[in-house]
């Protein structure tokens, strides 16, 4: 009895000591869990934006890297102040003076907006049909929507060149059937860009729509029907409002990247179409004007800040609901 009591009293401090050590260890571990991805994203995602902004205030120069002042970390604080003195907003003034940039921003936002709306028009019936499909079929349908997303973006855009060309498969088909006698000019027009964006971003629209539509309570529609509501007005009064979170998430997932899209306007839009992603690419790779490219990127980011914040807000809300 006394022995047992002694061993118990002896074991308590030892146990506490161990748990204190373990607590310290797990404290370090849990701090590392936060710190490692946090620092990675800070360094490779946030810091680069600061550098983009800084270089957008620099001047173009024929050197490597092709801008001055190149911030010299070795020169310490004096180097920093020297560099700061040479910074200017000339590149931004340049962007406002040349209507090319303004037009490119406007046309990108308009193209992305129209494409997003078209993607919603195409995606909604698909998502709706999937959500109403027999439960046993749904995983397969879902997989079929996701699968094209796994195949290369570049390849999927490339595939449309062969279809849309004047002597391409679409024109061959339409002329063979006898609908048209002259080939339609689609490639290298804005129509081709719309088709490309709708096609490439369709899964991003369908998936969030499907997940809200699938969760919806069917008895609401049944009740509306019982009360004499026509299917169409039931859709607009019940189904559509309830699916709004999915609509918003889907539209943002399409709109934001579409504004800065490069591959689609470059391969399908030809040289006549204007989009800011391509303007930035040309400034950087063809004109080698890094400061102007940085200024273009900074303004593009400012244009997209509101939709991006909305998107994060929607994500956070969805996460809260799942919890």
């Amino acid at each position: 009895m006394t022995n047992a009591a002694a061993s118990v009293s002896a074991s308590i401090p030892a146990d506490e000591e161990k748990s204190a050590g373990a607590r310290l260890l797990s404290g370090i571990a849990s701090r590392l869990v936060i710190l490692v991805p946090y620092c990675w994203l800070l360094f490779f995602f946030l810091v680069p934006f600061v550098i983009v902004f800084k270089i957008s205030l620099s001047q173009t120069a024929i050197s490597m890297p092709p801008y001055t002042p190149a911030l010299d970390f070795g020169a310490g604080f004096a180097g920093l102040t020297d560099a700061l003195k040479e910074l200017s907003f000339d590149n931004y003034v340049w962007l406002t003076e040349d209507p090319l940039y303004f037009n490119a921003y406007i046309s990108s936002v308009v193209i992305a907006g129209i494409s997003t709306f078209l993607t919603l028009l195409v995606g909604y019936p698909i998502a709706y049909g999937m959500a109403r499909a027999p439960a046993s079929l749904r995983p397969t349908l879902l997989m079929l929507v996701i699968l094209p997303f796994w195949t290369s973006f570049l390849i999927r855009v490339y595939a449309w060149i062969g279809i849309l060309k004047p002597e391409g498969l679409l024109n061959q088909f339409l002329m063979g059937v006898g609908v048209i006698s002259e080939p339609l000019i689609i490639l290298n027009t804005y129509t081709a860009i719309f088709i490309g964006i709708v096609y490439s971003y369709l899964p991003f629209m369908v998936l969030p729509l499907y997940s809200t539509l699938e969760k919806m309570d069917n008895s609401l529609i049944e009740a509306a029907n019982d009360l004499g509501c026509t299917p169409i007005s039931a859709f607009w009064k019940i189904t559509f409002p309830l699916s709004l979170p999915g609509v918003i998430a889907g539209c943002l997932l399409v709109f934001i990247p579409a504004v800065g899209e490069f591959v689609i306007p470059d391969l399908l839009g030809g040289s006549q179409t204007l989009m800011i992603g391509r303007t930035l690419w040309n400034e950087f790779f063809n004109n080698r004007d890094w400061p102007v490219a940085s200024a273009v990127a900074t303004i593009l980011l400012l244009v997209l800040v509101i939709p991006i914040v909305l998107f994060q807000h929607a994500q956070a809300k969805a996460q809260e609901q799942d919890r």
Binding site: V52, L252, F262, L280, L304
Partner: peptide, 11 residues
């Protein structure tokens, strides 16, 4: 959702 041209340039 960040346009790739921005991510690419900044990196």
């Amino acid at each position: 959702v960040m346009p790739e041209v921005i991510t690419g340039l900044s990196l």
